[in-house]
């Protein structure tokens, strides 16, 4: 993560992968995220839920510093992955994003071949020494994206020619190709039909074996189906964060209860 040679051994995987302390986000004069504290665990799917505009996507984009690309956006506070401050001056956001993959709301494959879509990340990070290694990485990523069987015969055809669900799984494959440790998903199923959604949800559950998955969703059913932990955001505040079963059956905060039962939102 740090922008120094990775000479030291990886520390033993602790349970907590990401720690956020007193995170504040401002868009110009708007205070979008207010004092969020959260600990996200490895090998877990964590869901961010809440009404639209509550800041869940904004907070998600803090974790791989995608907010840096927005000029008027300002992030304060402390976010650590494996104990390393990702907003430290020495951290290169580019390297951070290789470790923290992201899948977007709308499938956004590059207008290139399926192969090139997946190979792009490994290529720019120099993860393959030769073509055979690259082929290997691409195949592994596509298998992990649960799309290998559908595309193995047409790797050179354009990624934009796939169906919506296939495109989204391709984007997931692209994100895992750089071997990230964390996978951020910003409403990955909002543009998909129910069948494709089911496929992607199944995939998310599998991905949990290797990654800390953070998923933003507007669908409570989805959160209940795929996640082990759930965080409820409301008006920029993190209202409640607990095991998913607890949140959905026995929330502590009245606002959470209102949202779960459909009274606000």
């Amino acid at each position: 993560m740090y922008d120094v040679p990775h000479g030291r051994n990886e520390v033993a995987v602790t349970d907590v992968k990401i720690t956020a302390r007193n995170v504040q986000v401002y868009y110009g004069d708007t205070h979008a995220i207010k004092d969020v504290n959260v600990e996200i665990e490895s090998n877990t799917v964590t869901a961010f839920i809440g009404p639209s505009g509550c800041g869940k996507s904004t907070f998600l984009r803090c974790i791989n510093r995608m907010n840096d690309t927005i000029d008027i956006c300002r992030v304060e506070g402390d976010i650590r992955i494996d104990g390393d401050d990702i907003y430290d001056k020495r951290v290169d956001p580019v390297q951070l994003r290789a470790k923290v993959g992201m899948v977007f709301q709308k499938p956004n494959p590059f207008p290139k071949s399926i192969y090139d879509n997946v190979a792009y990340g490994p290529k720019i990070h120099g993860m393959a020494r030769n073509k055979a290694e690259l082929d290997d990485i691409v195949e592994r990523a596509l298998r992990r994206g649960a799309i290998w069987d559908e595309v193995k015969d047409r790797l050179q055809s354009p990624g934009t020619g796939l169906s919506g669900g296939q495109q989204q799984r391709l984007c997931i494959a692209r994100a895992v190709a750089t071997e990230p440790e964390v996978l951020l998903m910003d409403e990955p199923c909002s543009a998909l039909d129910p069948i494709a959604t089911a496929q992607v949800e199944e995939l998310i559950d599998e991905l949990r074996q290797n990654y800390a998955v953070v998923i933003v969703t507007h669908s409570m059913q989805q959160a209940a189906r795929v996640s082990q932990k759930t965080a409820f955001f409301h008006l920029g505040n993190l209202v409640e964060y607990d095991d998913t079963t607890k949140i959905f059956t026995n929330p502590e905060d009245s606002r959470t209860e209102s949202y779960i039962t459909g009274r606000i939102g």
Binding site: D3, P5, H6, H125, G126
Partner: peptide, 8 residues
């Protein structure tokens, strides 16, 4: 065996 910051 060195781990360079940038690609060659």
């Amino acid at each position: 065996g060195a781990r360079l910051h940038s690609l060659e």
